[in-house]
Design a protein around this nucleic acid. Sequence first.
DNA 1: TAATACCCTACTATATTAATAGGATATACA
DNA 2: TGTATATCCTATTAATATAGTAGGGTATTA
Lengths: 137, 137
Amino acid sequence: MLSKKTKYGIKALTYLAKKEQRDPIPIAEISKSENISLKFLESILLTLRKNELLGSKKGKGGGYYLLKEPSEIQMTVVMRILEGPISMVPCVSLNFYKKCADCPDETKCAVHNLMTELRDSSLEIFRNTTLADLCNC
Amino acid sequence: MLSKKTKYGIKALTYLAKKEQRDPIPIAEISKSENISLKFLESILLTLRKNELLGSKKGKGGGYYLLKEPSEIQMTVVMRILEGPISMVPCVSLNFYKKCADCPDETKCAVHNLMTELRDSSLEIFRNTTLADLCNC
DNA sequence: TAATACCCTACTATATTAATAGGATATACA
DNA sequence: TGTATATCCTATTAATATAGTAGGGTATTA
């Protein structure tokens, strides 16, 4: 299951991407428009900022804004920040690899091989989809 | 993340599929061979039996056995029984559909559309993979 | 200096996962 | 018929993750 964190994060990014200007947008505006709990959204945008997808400005007239063009933000990056590994098992993950304790030989593991195939197809979709693509919905 | 339940379930099914005969195999044998907690595996095989993938025989000489040929068991079926929906969000699920409370229009939702694409590619892999394919690892 | 809006830490309720425990029931075989 | 074998079934639990909530701190603008 996709976490609400990721779901809300993507919605917020899309909201920002759809704006013509790149002026700071307050959290409250996104929260209202997308029906997301303000405090929860606050923490999500904070992680996106710490991972250099968003910039922020404090005080009156402040808010969050995209640091790159929507067409330059791949969904692989967004997913890894918000959801973690693309792969469904650590032994298949490229960025979060961890060996299985119970499995003596990965190359002969049915789960490993099935999940490798799945990861590859997911990765292709996330790589070929940018925030700009998601704005055309 | 793939649950251990699903992981162990697939491993157990593959173990049974690899056997030449379709004689009943005791849980303990699978448990030892695949390094899976006996009691946990017990509950997993029980659900697979209740969902008509496995048959069982009690008493001495008893155990579990496949009810169909491995080549006739699609991974879509296995995944839905063990893991639940293929889709990462309920609003995209074919078999477990549920509308999002926060989302006024699915067709315009970035998450919905991205996850639909993802589901389709996952579905294609799971449909085109049978237990027999997983035995060739 | 007052209002705005992000920044940060800590806490909590709920649900899920991954088992574990313990016994009931059915079967084979001597 | 008795005993060992092996599934069947319910209930409980420890650990973890999720989805928030609470409360105040800090920077900026007008």
